[in-house]
Design a protein around this nucleic acid. Sequence first.
DNA 1: CTGAAAGCGCTAACAC
DNA 2: GTGTTAGCGCTTTCAG
Lengths: 343, 343
Amino acid sequence: MPKITLKKIAAILGISPATVSKALKDYPDISNDTKIKVKALAESLNYKPNSFAQSLRNQESKIIGLIIPKIVHHFFSNIINGVIDAASNKGYLVITLQSHESYEQEKDQINSLIEKNVDGILISLSDHTVNYKHINAIIEKGVPVVLYDRTSKLVNCSKVIINDRKAGYEATKYLIETGCRKIAHIRGPLKPQTTIDRFMGYKNALKEHDLPYDKNLVFETEHLSFEDGFEVAEEIAKHRHDIDGVFSTTDLLATGVMVKLQQKGIKVPDDISIMGFSNWFLTKITTPTLSTIDQPGYEMGRKTFDLLYDELCQIKNGESVSHEVVEIATRVVPRNSTKFIES
Amino acid sequence: MPKITLKKIAAILGISPATVSKALKDYPDISNDTKIKVKALAESLNYKPNSFAQSLRNQESKIIGLIIPKIVHHFFSNIINGVIDAASNKGYLVITLQSHESYEQEKDQINSLIEKNVDGILISLSDHTVNYKHINAIIEKGVPVVLYDRTSKLVNCSKVIINDRKAGYEATKYLIETGCRKIAHIRGPLKPQTTIDRFMGYKNALKEHDLPYDKNLVFETEHLSFEDGFEVAEEIAKHRHDIDGVFSTTDLLATGVMVKLQQKGIKVPDDISIMGFSNWFLTKITTPTLSTIDQPGYEMGRKTFDLLYDELCQIKNGESVSHEVVEIATRVVPRNSTKFIES
DNA sequence: CTGAAAGCGCTAACAC
DNA sequence: GTGTTAGCGCTTTCAG
């Protein structure tokens, strides 16, 4: 089955390839008659333009790159989902790559994508990325970039973020409103800005509600694992019976704390309320279900693509490109690991 | 910054583009001298070949397509992970698309990928795909296809699967070996072959251990949700106190059952043992942790790409292509929702 | 309204 | 060893 090309259609119809091309694209300077003829034949032959040739001419691939720190992760897989859905809508396909939280791999992958001439790249910075030359370099080359979730002020491009500080504030405030007065904060060791911001939110909430900030209530774990939550819970069960609320920077850590506290005979939420962060799937199946902050990955993914698309359009129309920083709203998801609001 | 091309390098060096091309590719008929000169300049100019032009000439894109029923899913995100890793190793990039379990979307997406001239496509059939014309059609066109996880005998191509029947057998056998004698089976309503096979395995195991098959021990739920597990557990708690083991076709369902049983005061595993299927992440954080069958998504993803790659090589070398069906080993993952083997 | 011609950047057969 | 040429398939002036 030989590939069917513009030239062949032209040959069959006894006209020129140029005319066929234009007819298919509804150029105004082609007679309706030939348009109809051409389209009919193209349809019946099931003609598909060769995308390489098109790309070569038009300098656009209709493919974008997506770099994810870690695919097997509830939040990030929602991001992928959102990006792919939004991209499909506009006729773009998505090449996904995983940095595995490595700076080196992030650089390599950006390179691979550039070499494939993707029309733009969406990136969430790896935890080990400390300088941004590789990203600024491609932006200068004219490749549109949008950063999502893990971003940096040192990169000048559009961004999609959540307000971690506000979210941390809301989480803590919710605990306070449900009656907690001695609220612990649990966080991982690495210091991406998100972690710091959630912590700041925690502090602000205490302050605004006239609760003292006590640094002994802040627990820093080695990783962000379920098991790390155990250790904190053991510590609380042994020495810190005054604690009546816990705000953890991740759902997984929160779940570890919750499970172990209950094993130690501490009741959740009666003795201690627990608030996670992200609204991962697992929060719905714990006992009790875990109250958390919804970090809407799907929506973030969609928005991230939309910003890239806007930029692509601006470039195509010769307009000056404007960068936007979009903040996606988070919200408290009350479940059963916290008490109900007293009204 | 003007794009740097073969022609420019040639111009600077005062030689022909063809020579440059060959030098860069280490053709034997180019003098070492010029090779060195060309390579040095290309390096210093940071020359990157234009992939569209290459693809247009060579008729290959070095991109493959991956169709996934549902991205936000622990097993499938592991598949993506494996495919992308294996592909990167061989210099291929991966465009991921999601069928959302829809036959129509599956067809559309295969089309999009074909139009982008991907070198091959990896597909897991959507639950609502009942005929395979769309897949057989592209195979006939010469596009290599590999099916993974959800496959069909009616498609003639390489496949990566697990032995669901054997896995169901092993799961049930494990329950028997740990002392269960009255084992319930819980499954969803849809009848993809995998569900049926796991059920067959269950029956076989009973038979081989001289336990009677009792169809009243088979529970069919409406969906595969956590909450559906509740209903089964309620039923068991109310009417079926003779049941001492449960084999569920998915981890999520199993978790729902386990949670509700415990709420009803039934002890797991003391009163009833529970065995899930897939080894999702959630199995590690339940109380007790859930025994299950490991369905190794990452490995399956890698192998799926490898089979495609083999086929691509065969085609390139003009060899006849051979199709392979690879069975990836599953294994029982004993955790705390089942008793320990009496030894 | 239509077509000839040029060219996107690269490669391979063939000639020198 | 190196260069010439032709062409992958498409698009877009520009001339008719």
